[in-house]
């Protein structure tokens, strides 16, 4: 049966501003269904973002919403979570926001393993500012600041997250909405820093410059370039060139920051009492 998105949306702000065929809406829908599945009260959820297309999400969803500065969403979210560890703080970010200007905060949120969920909508481009190359633009792909093809190698956000210590990391695509919902839901349930990378579509800014301007064609491109982790194990590095591995890539129990800090408080209070 139809999902009641209206309950979670600020309907007076709809329709949203995202371009025809943009994948962000698909990710936001998956996020809303996962929140619903968790049974969380809207009052107990905060959705925090930085700057960019994805970062306009807070305006449309009916939670405690915070639209911060470029790349800094995780820092604001860290403050919110530490102030209220009992509440649910979700950060939604784009590839430029999370991996370029916000790269340092991303690494350290992973390292800290603080109980936040980060959803990165990766569309390989800076959409809002006009199609400039992002840290995930594929090598050789065209962008408004890479008119002869990108010369930087793309950053693998999920691999970086795992290396930096995020304890739940999953990658899905907007062509597989049910799977994306499952990953986000599992990320919510996970105690620790969860990263869900959603490989998405930007037909206008990325597609148009790379012979993929048709939303359907671009969605298929995304699906075809995703390789399930199991299958990837049997593939050679050459075969995996230009592809991205999908699935639950990492799931580990590890000390969570707010819980550990509660122990710090206890130790501090014992020390103060003993004095």
């Amino acid at each position: 049966m139809a999902f009641n998105y209206e309950y979670y949306l600020r309907m007076d702000k709809m329709p949203h501003m995202w371009c025809p065929g943009c994948g962000i809406g698909i990710v936001v829908k998956a996020m809303l269904r996962a929140i619903d599945k968790m049974g969380w009260s809207k009052d107990d959820v905060a959705v925090v973002s930085g700057i960019g297309c994805t970062s306009r999400t807070p305006g449309y969803v009916d939670f405690n919403t915070l639209h911060t500065t470029h790349g800094r969403a995780l820092t604001f979210a860290t403050g919110l979570k530490l102030a209220r560890p009992d509440k649910h703080v979700i950060v939604i970010s784009g590839d430029g926001d999370a991996a370029a200007i916000g790269g340092n905060h991303f690494l350290h949120a992973c390292r800290r393993n603080i109980d936040l969920t980060l959803i990165v909508v990766n569309n390989y481009i800076y959409g809002m500012t006009g199609g400039q190359a992002s840290p995930t633009t594929p090598f050789g792909a065209r962008a408004s600041t890479a008119p002869y093809g990108a010369v930087d190698s793309p950053l693998d956000i999920s691999r970086v997250a795992i290396a930096a210590g995020a304890s739940y990391v999953a990658r899905g695509t907007v062509a597989q909405g049910f799977m994306l919902e499952k990953f986000i839901y599992n990320g919510f349930k996970h105690k620790g820093f969860a990263v869900i990378e959603a490989m998405s579509t930007c037909p206008i800014q990325y597609g148009r410059r790379n012979k993929l301007s048709d939303p359907v064609q671009l969605l298929k491109w995304v699906k075809e370039h995703g390789v399930p982790a199991k299958k990837a194990e049997k593939m050679s590095p050459e075969e995996l060139e230009g592809k991205f591995i999908t699935g639950e890539l990492h799931n580990q129990e590890r000390v969570e920051y707010t819980e550990e800090y509660e122990l710090v408080r206890q130790r501090a209070q014992e020390a103060a009492g003993a004095r």
Partner: peptide, 15 residues
Amino acid sequence: MLCEIHCPDFAIKVY
């Protein structure tokens, strides 16, 4: 539900 799940614009509902 594939159409509803993948409509980026919240424009389709299947009852």
